[in-house]
Amino acid sequence: MSTSWIAIILSSLVALVLTLLPLPPEVHVHNPQWLLLTVIFWSLYRPAQAGLIYAWCAGLLLDVATNGLLGLNALLFTLTAFLVLSLRVRLGVAPLLSQALLIAGFTLLYLAVALWVEGVAGDLVSMATYLSRAISNLAAWPVVYFILSRLGKRASR
């Protein structure tokens, strides 16, 4: 078990190095997302060790390394890992070609969400206020549930 931990961390580091390789911009555009592919592989074949938290940490590391919006890649990596983990039983035994095709499909989704977030990024400050509403909803839900279930019981009686 411990060896696979070492393998996971080492391979992630190598993937990060491959991502950070200084390349001319024309080539760089076509550089595969090594770290994302590594995360997908480990969530496919070592789901017990490499779960969502691992994907989130890898994404955050990529954000920091590329000076991007902090948390963007973390979010996208987590979502991708979630997708992979939920399709794992089917994807794990699929032939290599169809795996590659599916991963290309994931990447398209990934890019779509990335574009969307970058579009929204200007409004992220107001997003923070909405988030506080999400948290107050979280706190209010038990109260609402309690009152309304009481009401529902009384009405059905």
């Binding site: 902090l70 948390g71 987590t78 939920s86």
Partner: peptide
Amino acid sequence: DSHRPGFNLLLILVVVSIALMSLDR
């Protein structure tokens, strides 16, 4: 083994990411 990931963990990580993005902004 179906290592189905928990929805709770996903939601927590998503909220943390969005919060991080907003705070970074």
